[in-house]
Design a protein around this nucleic acid. Structure first.
Length: 262
DNA sequence: ATGGTAGGTCCCCTA
């Protein structure tokens, strides 16, 4: 069976319920992983999602910040969350599919503006989060697993509009790229998007602050789909729905898709 | 070098 998964930082699931419904109607992924839902779980507008067939949800939330949710039209069960850095943040949740496949939905801290942990504790938090992620994957190498989410790092030169101009900008600094690479390597994770689309500029986020995001095209690839090698070998169909950045009341991130043979 | 936009909450935080 082929399963299509989509990841999308929605920047408030309540405000953007209409475009979530649009995405589900137009693209009909089997599973949609959302980040930055910014909502307690019991206030996520699930009725409309269920009416379109997405009757399963595994989620974590808090009042004003963070929040992750996995919507599915296939049965999933709650596989728990990891409280990275012991802060009580809703930045991770996992779901298990009927065949045993584990799906991790992650929202890695943005890290603030200054890429120096001595003066910016948010940057330190981001690096510590990534180190903890690495250590968890070192403890037990994941199998039959998919990891998606807003990782808030654009690792490759062609994942940003200007490698040179972003080297000291949080999301593309060498230390962040190194930390992300260590976590990826520790778990044996394959970057499915780049396995499918190995060449060329690829972005999933454009700032709200640009005058004309489309014309300027100063994007970054912050949203990722990873899989363990056993699943990556049967993966394909990766794409990034750039058009969603131009939708009514858009998120600053767009949906990223991949399909898996399970 | 700077400020630009967006969302949520309770007047300022985060991205």
């Amino acid at each position: 069976m082929t399963v299509t998964i989509c990841t999308w930082n929605i920047n408030s699931v309540r405000l953007r319920e209409p475009i979530v419904l649009d995405l589900l109607r137009q693209e009909a992924p089997d599973i949609l992983c959302l980040q930055e839902t910014k909502s307690p779980v019991d206030k996520i507008p699930v009725e409309g999602f269920a009416a379109l067939g997405y009757t399963h949800m595994v989620a974590r939330g808090q009042k004003g910040y963070n929040g992750v949710a996995i919507l599915s039209r296939l049965p999933i069960e709650d596989a728990g969350q990891i409280d990275f850095c012991n802060k009580g943040d809703a930045r991770h949740v996992a779901a298990r599919m009927a065949d045993g496949t584990l799906i991790h939905n992650l929202y890695i801290p943005a890290g603030g503006d200054e890429p120096d942990r001595e003066v910016n504790e948010k940057f330190g938090h981001k690096l510590d989060f990534l180190t903890e992620l690495r250590d968890r994957f070192r403890e037990g190498r994941p199998q039959r697993a998919i990891l998606v989410g807003d990782l808030n790092i654009a690792p490759r030169e062609d994942d940003v509009w200007s490698h040179k101009q972003l080297l000291k900008v949080v999301s593309h600094t060498p230390i962040e790229v190194e930390h992300l690479g260590n976590a990826q390597e520790a778990g044996g994770w394959v970057d499915v998007t780049r396995q499918d689309i190995p060449e060329g500029q690829l972005y999933s986020w454009w700032s709200y602050r640009a005058k004309d995001w489309d014309a300027a095209d100063r994007g970054r690839r912050l949203d990722h789909v990873w899989a363990t090698p056993d699943l990556a070998s049967g993966a394909g169909g990766s794409r990034i729905l750039r058009a969603a950045r131009g939708w009514e009341k858009p998120s600053d991130h767009v949906p990223v898709f991949a399909s898996f043979t399970l």
